[in-house]
Amino acid sequence: MMKLLLYLSDCMLPFMIFYIVGFGLLMKRPVYDDFVEGAKEGARTVLGIMPTLVGLMTGVGVLRTSGLLEFLVGRMDGWLEKVGFPPQLLPAALVKLFSSSAATGLALDIFKEYGPDSRLGLTVSIMLSCTETVFYTMSIYFMSVKVKRTRYTLPGALLATGAGIAASIWLGNYIGL
């Protein structure tokens, strides 16, 4: 089962590239020209988010080098470990509800501290890949149609996010062995 999952991981990217380029060719598109156009957009996007990353990585850097992050995480050790949640990942999990880029900053910190292939590194990678910015998404979508009573959206979104986080921890433990 895990072997299959890891095999799928390796195949996914090449297969999707094959499929998309093949599809483009079937549709008689100038695929290379399209590719270059898209790659240009991507490069612009990355340069556009560079200032954001500088800001957030600086913020996280301050939080960590000052010892505050360690202190905050240390406060929550006991009961988090009881439910099997790695306390080091709590800041990233909570921040992700509001901001994807800030959560990324915290995840990079985990990579630096423990390595991306460690149990924590794998778990945080999966966790951030299977969750969305709950509050941010809800606010832009509902604000656009002037909805104030969101009814069962928030409980449902948080439940789904919680399920994703639980699955990430389980999977992270499993493949991190």
């Binding site: 991981s9 390796d10 996914m12 999966i126 299977c130």
Partner: peptide, 12 residues
């Protein structure tokens, strides 16, 4: 293996 998380991420 940077892409090792693709399968688990899809599962999660």
């Amino acid at each position: 293996s940077p892409a090792a998380i693709v399968g688990p991420a899809i599962a999660a």
